[in-house]
């Protein structure tokens, strides 16, 4: 019986890009471009980042007009108050070729709604928002949101009236963007902790707006593996 036993696969699918990454990484370590310890340090750092500091930044900005002013003029400085140092948090102490140290906080108003994309690749404010969701990196989202923003937003469940200007932020250079949404009605007198709970990752990208009682992102469809791991 024992020879029939097979461990459950740890992943459903390994993409060509993952195989390429492993090959390039091992070559780079072999050639001495970086060490295995460097790689581990970075991987562990990337495991620690998530959207909570950005949610905290928004909650603080809603409560403190002075802090909001700082956030929209100097996102990197404002990030310090939520425990994120864009320059020294990363093991390199200056960023990476994709994690540059310039954060812009885009303030929504009742007549202006921002939504963030990177049409050229998948630039994302990782130090303060964590790893991007899979859909953010897909060509489908990247190519359609710039051209048909309202249609794409409505697929996320966000229908905006004509009088609201939709502004797409195409993050194509060294700035990284988060959205500072309008504080929703029904949150009067809330504490910073309560407010931070309703600022989800999707609200910070701009494809959703905060609502009292809604503390999680909507579920996105999960597609079956195209090339399942042959186990």
């Amino acid at each position: 019986m024992a020879e029939k036993h097979k461990a459950a696969p740890m992943v459903d699918e390994i993409s060509d890009f993952e195989i390429l990454e492993i090959a390039v990484r091992e070559l780079a370590i072999e050639k001495g471009l970086f060490t295995a310890e460097d790689h581990q340090l970075w991987s562990e750092y990337m495991e620690t980042v998530g959207p909570l500091p950005a949610a905290r930044l928004v909650a603080k900005a809603w409560l403190d007009p002075e802090f909001k002013k700082l956030a929209v003029t100097d996102g990197v400085k404002a990030s310090l108050e939520v425990g994120i140092n864009w320059i020294t948090d990363m093991p390199s102490h200056f960023g990476t070729p994709s994690d540059y140290c310039n954060l812009r906080v885009m303030e929504d108003t009742p007549t202006l709604k921002h939504v963030v994309v990177c049409t050229l690749c998948s630039c994302y404010p990782r130090p303060i928002l964590g790893q991007s969701p899979e859909w953010y990196r897909t060509p489908n989202y990247r190519r359609r949101i710039v051209r048909w923003p309202r249609q794409v937003l409505s697929e996320f469940g966000l229908a905006l009236p004509e009088e609201v200007e939709v502004r797409v932020e195409d993050s194509n250079q060294k700035s990284r963007f988060i959205v500072l949404p309008v504080r929703p009605e029904g949150t009067e007198g809330w504490s910073e902790d309560q407010l931070a709970e309703i600022v989800t990752r999707d609200c910070l990208i701009g494809v959703a707006v905060p609502k009292p009682g809604k503390t999680a992102n909507d579920k996105r469809p999960v597609h079956p593996a195209i090339n399942p791991v042959d186990h």
Binding site: R104, R147, P149, E165, R167, D170, Q173
Partner: peptide, 26 residues
């Protein structure tokens, strides 16, 4: 940081949403 009117990027962009914009850096 530059702001485009969406109508100037996509000729077929709906007239009803003429105030929509796109911002990027060059």
């Amino acid at each position: 940081s530059v702001i485009f009117n969406q109508k100037d990027l996509w000729p077929e962009y709906p007239e009803a949403y003429a105030s929509d914009t796109l911002e990027t850096e060059l």
